[in-house]
């Protein structure tokens, strides 16, 4: 196909949009509504999963040592664990560091109180390794293994969080994919209905084009371009709306529920929309493309 033909088809597509303003508007509205819902849903889900991931990442196993353990043995254990396949990160906190951290957290306003413990670290024996696993599913097996190592007095971990979190994340993932697929299908259905109304008007035109020797592609291209342009416009509107709403909601939640936001964190606007924008444009163009292709297909059989 020649460039001039492509340019001609683009021109025809744009002309069609202008000529059928009402129909174009209805189609844009349909796609806008669909993509708004898809985007909204995606944003909620993504934040949910982000939350779960954050929580998962912060779940760690803490290992404490026997009271009479030597520095050397602690180091040995550290190396042994650090070399394990399933460990993503291992962090050593000495008793002194633990106390320093504690002081900062709880005695920040009353340093005098803390002074009382100066030479007698109340957290002696609390030196530990914090171990973060690559995958929480491996936690049970890993804990069993830890308990076999000599020099380890105690292993702290939370069994339930781990399992619930991974299961929850999985369910949320499946549900979100199915809802997005359903919305996409609904979008195509609605758009093909709207295109159908527009196309019955042009049925005779399509027939004439075919009878004077136009190929299917040549007849279809302007319609497809029309569909894609409408789809893209229908994607840009909800993107703008979603960005504005997302910013507002985050600010609102942060200011209204400060205690809540100290536990819950949100994905930044930039980060989430770096996914939402291309996704919305792609879905918009996709709905326009597939919708117009399906509807025009049966009119091409001349």
């Amino acid at each position: 196909m020649k460039v001039s033909t492509l340019a001609y088809s683009c021109g025809q597509g744009i002309k069609n949009i202008k000529r059928n303003k009402l129909f174009s508007l209805a189609s844009v509205g349909t796609i806008t509504a669909c993509i708004f819902l898809i985007g909204l849903f995606y944003i909620i889900i993504a934040n949910f999963q982000y939350l779960v991931k954050e929580a998962e990442d912060s779940v760690c196993i803490t290992v404490f040592f026997d009271d009479d353990i030597t520095e050397k043995r602690i180091q040995e254990i550290g190396e042994q664990l650090g070399n394990r396949e399933e460990v993503s990160e291992i962090k050593y906190t000495s008793a002194d560091e633990a106390w320093a951290d504690y002081k900062e957290r709880y005695f920040a306003e009353e340093p005098d109180l803390a002074e009382g413990f100066r030479d007698d670290n109340p957290l002696a024996g609390s030196s530990n390794y914090e171990i973060y696993l690559k995958d929480l599913k491996m936690q049970d097996a890993f804990v069993t293994y830890l308990k076999t190592i000599s020099g380890i007095r105690k292993v702290n971990y939370s069994e339930n969080t781990a399992n619930t979190l991974t299961d929850f994340a999985k369910v949320v993932g499946y549900v979100s994919i199915s809802i997005i697929v359903i919305l996409f299908a609904v979008g195509i259905f609605l758009i093909s209905n709207t295109v159908m109304i527009g196309i019955t008007v042009r049925k005779e035109e399509i027939r004439i084009m075919k009878l004077i020797g136009a190929t299917d592609i040549f007849v279809r291209l302007p319609f497809v371009i029309e569909g894609v342009i409408i789809g893209l416009i229908g994607a840009i509107l909800p993107i703008i709306a979603l960005v504005l709403i997302y910013q507002k909601v985050i600010v609102y939640l942060m200011t209204q529920f400060q205690s809540f936001t100290s536990i819950v964190t949100f994905i930044s606007v930039r980060q989430i929309f770096s996914v939402v924008i291309p996704m919305a444009l792609l879905i918009g163009a996709g709905i326009g493309l597939i919708g117009s292709k399906i509807t025009i297909r049966k009119h091409l059989k001349v």
Partner: peptide, 29 residues
Amino acid sequence: VVFQDFRLLKDRNVYDNIAFAQRVIETPV
């Protein structure tokens, strides 16, 4: 073909109706 009922494209003027037949076969502009 000259159709008995002409079958011109209603949405285009005379020039574009004739030009269309040429665009179909990708004649240079």
